[in-house]
């Protein structure tokens, strides 16, 4: 019973953050701002859903499967975000924030 409540609560938290990530992706005005929402919110969203799944399967023996996915997502999310940011800088996408004058960039 307690496990069921905890699993349901974690699922709610997870779906809230998944939704926040998607809303941010859909409504924020420029690419660099949009990059924030999915990279963070969805990672925590999937994280709490996996926690829910782990808790749920605890009833018939502990399971470490979910931990692997969480670990993998937390390791890879910053890498894909960084590569996407670099691609956006390369494409010189319009951004609301000005580039700082003191950051050295290779001329291309």
């Amino acid at each position: 019973m307690i496990i069921e409540i905890a699993v349901s609560a974690l699922l709610m938290v997870g779906s809230f953050f998944m939704l926040v990530g998607a809303i941010g992706l859909a409504r924020l005005p420029d690419f660099f701002m949009r990059l924030h929402a999915p990279t963070k919110a969805t990672t925590l969203g999937v994280g709490s859903m996996l926690l829910a799944s782990m808790l749920y399967s605890l009833q018939d023996g502990p399971s470490l499967h979910e931990l692997l996915i969480v670990l993998f997502l937390f390791l890879t999310a910053p890498v894909s975000a960084h590569l996407l940011a670099q691609a956006a800088l390369k494409l010189k996408l319009r951004s609301r924030a000005p580039m700082p004058g003191d950051f050295p960039r290779l001329p291309d």
């Binding site: 998607a22 999915p38 969805t42 996915i69 997502l73």
Partner: peptide, 9 residues
């Protein structure tokens, strides 16, 4: 990328 993570969820 966000679609992939949504699919995992």
């Amino acid at each position: 990328d966000t679609l992939y993570i949504n699919a995992v969820a």
